[in-house]
């Protein structure tokens, strides 16, 4: 059975390996370019303050904008795996009638499914792990320029939503989930193209719900309060700021109309521009929570994937044909 699976999967695996190699070559080449640019322009050690370093950062971003755009494509890897590997896993066999061939040989349907799904799952996990590792290495020069124009040595902001889902173990979990949801859709719909569409549609909502509603508050966020108009004591610590509120001395939220401030205030936003005793309260997840949040995220999606896989097995055994 493993040889049949390998024979069936060969074209897909070879294609993916080729894409991965091409991508790796591109990553190595552009990483060299970015690193030498940063070294030559002193971005890594910039101490000139916002005005100088910000300009350097912007220059970097406009030079390497194309590279940064490419990096966003990794977000599509799980959904592509779900649509092109997961959805056809069972649907293609049923659509072409070959399930009548393989399911009537001496290997049972359970073993057929276990070997086939297992092989593709392992390959998908490996592919995504390699890609994530490659991305993390590739984009490490960016730590000097990201985070709203702050430039200079920083702790990075890998916990911020822009980056969080491209790092650590979460992408692998997304991929496993996407594959399993695709396989389940294929078993139910029994047609490849509709199953691919269903795989994409079913994959997106859990991701959005997780990122918008669960991840910010699954561990109770911390708060820090400091006099309005002064820099936060946690500046440069790589926190994921969820919200900031302006409060008066008694702790009640207040509003300040920035339009009515003096021209000087609009520029500096110094402490004297706020009502006396006003403080800013930041709600944040600290960088130290990167791994706990990664494990929670990965756990949730691996769990969802397992449910989908169990459903697929059950449906294939009981309901299909």
């Amino acid at each position: 059975m493993i040889r049949l699976t390998w024979r069936q999967a060969r074209p897909a695996f070879v294609t993916c390996a080729a894409i991965l190699l091409a991508f790796a070559a591109f990553a190595v080449y552009t990483e060299r370019e970015m690193s030498s640019y940063i070294a030559a322009n002193g971005l890594a050690t910039c101490t000139g303050g916002e005005s100088v370093c910000g300009v350097l950062g912007e220059a970097f971003k406009s030079k390497f904008g194309g590279v940064l755009a490419v990096s966003q494509f990794i977000g599509f890897v799980p959904v592509l795996i779900g649509a092109f590997w997961g959805a056809p896993l069972i649907a293609r066999e049923i659509e072409s009638g070959t399930h009548r061939l393989v399911w009537t040989q001496s290997v049972g349907r359970v073993r057929w499914l276990a070997v086939k799904a297992g092989t593709f799952l392992l390959a998908a996990a490996a592919l995504c792990a390699i890609l994530t590792w490659l991305m993390t290495w590739w984009l490490h020069p960016l730590q000097y320029v990201q985070g709203g124009g702050t430039v200079g040595p920083s702790a990075g902001d890998r916990i911020s939503p822009n980056v969080f889902s491209f790092m650590g173990i979460a992408p692998v979990a997304y991929t496993l989930f996407a594959f399993c949801v695709g396989a389940a859709a294929g078993a139910v719909v029994k047609k490849v193209v509709p199953a691919m569409v269903a795989a994409i549609i079913l994959y997106v909502p859990p991701r959005i719900i997780m990122a918008r509603s669960v991840r910010p508050s699954v561990i109770t966020p911390e708060t820090v309060s400091f006099p309005a108009g002064t820099p936060s004591p946690r500046t440069g610590m790589g926190d994921w700021i969820l919200s900031n509120t302006l409060v008066d001395a008694a702790g009640h939220p207040i509003n300040v109309d920035y339009q009515t401030m003096s021209a000087a205030c609009q520029k500096t936003m110094g402490p004297s521009c706020y009502p006396a005793g006003a403080r800013l309260v930041d709600t944040y997840q600290s960088l130290a929570r990167f791994w706990p949040l990664q494990f929670i995220e990965a756990g949730v999606f691996v769990g969802l994937g397992t449910l989908c896989l169990a459903f697929t097995v059950w449906w294939t055994m009981r309901r299909v044909s």
Partner: peptide, 30 residues
């Protein structure tokens, strides 16, 4: 199933396999 042979109506086979691979597949599965 190991003792029963079945040929379905539309004679399903993997179109992108060669004839030899199809015959070898019989050995992989039985």
């Amino acid at each position: 199933l190991a003792r029963v042979g079945f040929v379905a109506q539309d004679k399903p086979l993997y179109g992108h396999f060669t004839v030899a691979e199809t015959l070898r597949m019989g050995g992989w599965l039985n």
